[in-house]
Amino acid sequence: MPSTATHTVDASDTADAPLIVMENVNKWYGAYHALRDVNLSVRRGEKIVLCGPSGSGKSTLIRCINHLETIKSGRITVDGVRLDESSRSVDAVRSEVGMVFQNFNLFPHMTVLQNCTLAPMRVRGVTAAAAEATAKRFLERVRIAEHAHKYPAQLSGGQQQRVAIARALCMEPKVMLFDEPTSALDPEMVKEVLDTMVSLARDGMTMVCVTHEMGFARQVADRVIFMADGQILEQADPESFFRHPTHPRARSFLGEILAHH
């Protein structure tokens, strides 16, 4: 395949062009077909909740958006930048896409503040003072500024996840990806993380969230997408999705999940 240089799609310059476009994306792990002809378009400011049984490909899908996973075929465009194998396109996309992981993945040898200032300084080239000012602003926002000089191990899971959100926000991304951000948390800490996410949504952040928190989906999602076996089987606004799921797999999934809530 001839390598195409990173190019800008003209339409993306207009505010109503979609921020993320995935077209006929296919992904394989060896013989396992992890994503099957996935088509997805995310508008600016849109909040999407991805749900589905484990192994349905929802985490894989969002990990393709910032190229943590490579795809076999199809195309992915983020804010007008077509993701190809070139490191230039990958770097361009990653600096605009924030990601929050299930296991926080804070850097344990750095303080909370250092975790937040590293990428802005090394990637954006901002000064230490400017990076710290930005970091403090976002740490304030996730209500954890008083722990700025502690190390991750000294914080609870919920606090660590809020730091991880602040760390991603410090790059001032155009979209935030959340990969099961509350799944590794003790129940009493889920709320503080969800509250942070809700407030982020209220401020207009574009968000793609893999989560089983259906309350969160009801509260903030513009669209709920249901996946199974690597395919998008159903997508609808939360009201319709929860009330009248059409696909039988979605119905049985909701039955199981809501039975426990």
């Binding site: 943590l68 990653r94 990601m99 992981f101 850097f107 090394r122 990637v123």
Partner: peptide
């Protein structure tokens, strides 16, 4: 943990700072 590499990548850190600041000290 793989997550350390992934978090560094997701933040857009290039090879040099990824290794020098995140991976090698640990």
């Amino acid at each position: 943990p793989k997550g350390q590499f992934e978090a560094a990548r997701a933040l857009g850190l290039h090879y040099l700072p990824r290794m020098r600041d995140v991976i090698l000290p640990q």
